[in-house]
Simulated scan of single mutants.
Amino acid sequence: MLDLHLHRSQAKPSLRLSEWLNVLRAGVLGMNDGIISTAGIVLGVAGAQQSSFALFIAGVSGMLAGAFSMGGGEYVSVSQQRDMQAMTAHRQKQAIAKNYPKELADLTAVYTAKGISKELAQQVATELMLKDGLGATCREKYNIELGNYFNPWHAAISSFCSFFAGAILPLLTITLVPAKWKVSVTMLAVACALLLTGYASATLGKTKRKRAVLRNLLVGLLTMFVTYAVGHLFAI
């Protein structure tokens, strides 16, 4: 039983899964923002009754600016998280060196809280502290796997590419669809896309899908109506 517990404690797939989920989260959010932001821009310009070329230039500009903004934001955010993970591991290493008995007791308490008997928890904690005290305490106390920190480039690239991909939809519809159908077709296409991203976001976050989908759709529609109305006020 002890060997089985040690094997499970040293396994790493949970953190690898969390990193992939972080990348997927950045991708879904980036695509959602790309859809809404670019749709808002092109519909605002469409409301001002500008030419198809003006719509295209505005859409491309918004797409590039948004993609770099999202990618840069994710890079800075995840880099900060990575730095915090490394700093926590460094402080934990110092804590073990300064007060080994306390860290052993803390690790024992973690296993006891999980329902393991005090004797077995003490044995498990002792074995782990002797073999890899820093890795065990970081994993159990802070959910940090040494050497497997979040990669800021993964999130940044995911967010950049997904924003770009999401922005293409409203950009293509607003520039390629005949003039009299531009606005309605763009709104319909964006609404359908927002339903999908809302569903994906709720699935990844394990939240209520219906609420997330409706919230995402309402925010997107409100953005499109407001920007179109504002653009229409300045129509030439």
Rank of each mutant, 00 (worst) to 15 (best):
Q49R: 07
A200I: 15
D3Y: 10
K210I: 10
S201V: 00
P178M: 07
M70W: 09
E19W: 02
H154F: 12
G62W: 08
V78M: 03
A95T: 03
G44D: 11
I144A: 05
A109N: 14
A193E: 07
S9C: 02
L195R: 01
A125E: 11
A156K: 13
F68S: 05
Y199H: 13
Q123N: 11
L15T: 11
S52C: 01
L214Q: 10
G220L: 06
G135E: 07
Q81F: 05
K141T: 01
F150E: 10
N216L: 02
S79A: 09
L172G: 02
K114L: 12
Y228L: 03
G44I: 09
V213F: 06
F164I: 05
K131V: 15
K114Q: 15
V219Q: 12
H90W: 05
K180Y: 13
L24V: 08
M87H: 07
S9F: 09
V110Q: 01
R215H: 02
W20H: 12
K210F: 08
E119L: 12
K210Y: 01
Y142H: 15
A48M: 07
L204E: 04
N148E: 14
A125H: 11
L169S: 06
T227K: 04
A113S: 11
N22Y: 00
C138D: 08
H232S: 14
K102H: 10
F150W: 00
V213S: 06
G135V: 04
A11W: 07
G72C: 06
L214K: 07
V219K: 11
Q81H: 08
Y228K: 01
L196F: 15
G66Y: 03
G147S: 03
R91C: 00
A86Y: 02
A155R: 03
L188F: 15
H90K: 10
R91D: 09
S52I: 02
A105F: 09
K114M: 13
A155M: 02
H154A: 09
K98S: 07
A189Y: 06
L218W: 02
N22F: 01
Q92R: 08
K208V: 11
G62E: 09
L15M: 07
G73E: 13
R215L: 14
R209C: 00
V45Y: 01
G66V: 01
Y111D: 05
S52T: 10
G73K: 06
G166Q: 08
V23R: 09
A156E: 11
M31F: 14
I96Q: 05
P152C: 07
S61I: 05
T38V: 15
Y199M: 14
